[in-house]
Simulated assay, not measured.
Amino acid sequence: MTSQIVTRPKTVVVATPRGGRHGGGRWIPFLVRRIGRMLIAMFVIVTAAFVVLRAAGGDPVRAALGPTAPASVVAERRAQLGLDDPLIVQFWNYLTGIVFRGDLGVSLITGRSVNELVEYRLPATVQLAGIAFIVILLIAIPLGLAIAILTAGNRRRPVEVAFTSVTGFFAAVPEYLIGVALLTLFAITIPLLPVAGISGPQSYILPVLALALGASASLSRIARVEALNVLSDDYIRTARSKRLPAAMVYFRHALPNMLTATLTLGGALLATMIAGSVLVERVFNWPGMGSAFVQAIITKDYGIVQGLAIVYAAIILVVNLLVDVVLAILDRRTTILETA
């Protein structure tokens, strides 16, 4: 009888990083790096805001109170604000006030705390930007996917030309000009909607559209490119070869795989949109930080300008951090945890 030697296949054990692909071993260094960069960026922004406003020249208190204000009142206000101290002392007091007390300063005109102004105005700005961001996603992602489906394989060139022309136009026009056009057409010429302020749900329509149209145009172009890349992948061709329903191919297989880059860039647009809301709020007299910021510039109230500029910068930095975190969670192929 012939003996047979049976060998068992070797089991290969692949070591994985502790905590999995997105374990704490990678998250902690990532967060330490990013928070450290945020702190450095905030220090630079605070320093720049302090230096630029003081390098503008002139007496900010005199500019804020007006040329007819008595010299004694101006001198008293300067003493209250510590503007007679050396610049290095002023900067140290301002920096330590922000770091240890969260004190953003006071208005040069009214003496009101900038923190109170932010507490009162920030919710309106966040509501406006948040609703506009949701509208952007609801417009851009379906539109980009639909145009990609219609124009895949260089089909329907007129549709592609019309899409790129219209979206290119809206992407190039500043938000405040879109706001002026909408205000003129739908609130003044055809009085369908409120002209300014918050007087009900209808008050959100025009400012939200002013913020959302340009960003939706930009994001829909990006969504179309991502969708075209996904639709040309092998697994989509395999799904089609299995004669799966078109809805399943597009919404179950294509849509989730195009969302990562689209949502990432959408988050970046949210940061720029918050900054861009400054002039839109002014156009619609929206009771948010933007209108207060513009008014402070007009009245030369540098205390408010300085404080609100720091708040806007902090919001943008936090949004960018959240975008990177969401990207790392959604896309396991990303190397952002190692490189960011």
Rank of each mutant, 00 (worst) to 15 (best):
I178T: 04
V195M: 09
S199A: 14
L145Y: 08
V195H: 04
L183H: 00
T164I: 11
L185Y: 09
G153A: 11
P174T: 13
I139A: 03
L182F: 12
L182P: 06
L193A: 08
P194F: 04
L143P: 07
V173M: 05
N154F: 02
I188S: 06
S165M: 15
R156L: 15
G200I: 02
T189Y: 13
P194G: 03
P142Q: 10
G153T: 10
A196D: 13
L193G: 02
A140T: 08
L182G: 12
P142H: 02
F169D: 03
A148C: 09
G197K: 02
N154Q: 12
A146F: 15
E175D: 15
R156I: 08
I136W: 00
A152F: 08
F133S: 12
V135D: 04
A181M: 15
A187R: 02
R155A: 15
A140Y: 03
V161G: 07
G168H: 06
A146D: 06
I149P: 00
A140Q: 04
A187M: 04
I134D: 04
A187S: 05
I131K: 01
G144L: 07
E175T: 13
T184M: 14
Q127H: 08
G197Q: 00
G153V: 10
N154T: 05
E160I: 07
R157H: 06
I131H: 01
A162Q: 10
L143K: 05
L137I: 13
V161W: 11
A140F: 05
T167I: 01
P142S: 07
A129M: 04
A171D: 07
I178N: 01
I131A: 01
A181L: 15
N154S: 14
P158N: 10
P191M: 02
S165Q: 09
L138F: 09
A172R: 11
L143W: 14
A152N: 13
L177K: 01
L192G: 08
I198P: 03
G197L: 03
I134A: 09
T151M: 05
T151K: 12
T184H: 11
A162T: 15
T164S: 12
I139T: 03
L150H: 05
A152R: 14
T189V: 10
L145P: 10
L182V: 04
I136S: 01
T164G: 05
P194E: 06
L182R: 09
I131V: 14
A187L: 03
I190C: 00
I178C: 03
E160F: 09
I188Y: 09
R156Y: 13
G168T: 00
